[in-house]
Design a binder for these strands. Sequence first.
DNA 1: TATTGTTATACTCTATAACTATA
DNA 2: TATAGTTATAGAGTATAACAATA
Lengths: 192, 192
Amino acid sequence: MEAVMASEEGCGELLARLSDMGAVIKALKRALPFTGPHAGLALLATLHRCGEQRIGDLAGLFEVDLSVMSRQVADLRDRGWIERVPNPNDGRSWYVRLTPDGTRVAEEALGSVRRLLVDTLEDWTDDEVAELSGLIGRLRSSLDAHRARAARLPRTARTGTVQAGTVQAGTVQSTAQTGTAQTRAAQTVKGH
Amino acid sequence: MEAVMASEEGCGELLARLSDMGAVIKALKRALPFTGPHAGLALLATLHRCGEQRIGDLAGLFEVDLSVMSRQVADLRDRGWIERVPNPNDGRSWYVRLTPDGTRVAEEALGSVRRLLVDTLEDWTDDEVAELSGLIGRLRSSLDAHRARAARLPRTARTGTVQAGTVQAGTVQSTAQTGTAQTRAAQTVKGH
DNA sequence: TATTGTTATACTCTATAACTATA
DNA sequence: TATAGTTATAGAGTATAACAATA
């Protein structure tokens, strides 16, 4: 046993901290003056950050069932904050993107939380914040990679729903971070 | 503007990662073979780690309303995993602690997630895991401190419910980590 | 009068299953 | 036959408010 690998002790401590993290997220949500479903705000934020996405990919990104994302999208559409555009390459799927109204709402709400966070982290350096962001990002990558591994090897073949959505989620994040989003033109409709 | 303080850019990035963290937590919960309410497992874990606690303190620790914690405690009590003991110093409040059955359930479930985490973090060093744990813990401390600041200064006095619960939460965690938990003897009952 | 905890009620988020439409 | 998405339904989890008991 070398001392380098992640130990059960270390992971036990991390587990306890994940509970803290859940509490922090809850507290931030509560402090947020946002007139709408809070789950929807996270969706707006992602669309604002990463550009238009397919509903299934968004479901994978947020680790929720496709039906849940479908409902959230419908809700935000009713509020006029997002719109669906047909996928020219596949008549079954849709791309979802912010409307101008949705962009405004997203920017206002995000600005508000961001300022709250800046105030909260008054004694943090930007490097420390970036370090935390980086480690969380890596945690998610590790999780996705682990599930990809588990999906390749194990007990006979699976349908692949979960893994596909999840692995794609990581991809979406990465491309979005490097600015590749907002590709794919709109129309060429078909049915819908 | 020095370059050290936490910037809006850095906090915006962290915000996006918090969403990732929410997804990770959801995924871990789902992967968990636990026959019971998942919110309850977090509660068992805390009692196992920190020893007996008052219901109100647990509510603050998890950032939920007292009524929510009361219901969760009742549920776990119905399952025989926790029990309440009267607080000899205050007839209104109760301490909650694991039963032997609850201890077993908690250890089994926690061991399972811990092993999953060890597998997932196969390319992390123990130091990196500790670094992430530390930063998350500090994030929570900063949030609590910020709310304590906000509660001291602002718009007239408040009742203090939120702050009290929250600040105490931090205290509970710290003492527990240094092994001070499991203090306070049981009985001397009164009414109940 | 304030605080600890419980209970009733309602609302949000979520998953499962059955369905439609397209590939 | 498989996949993308929708809808119906049910189950967690949560907050608000009204309540009881103790400080």
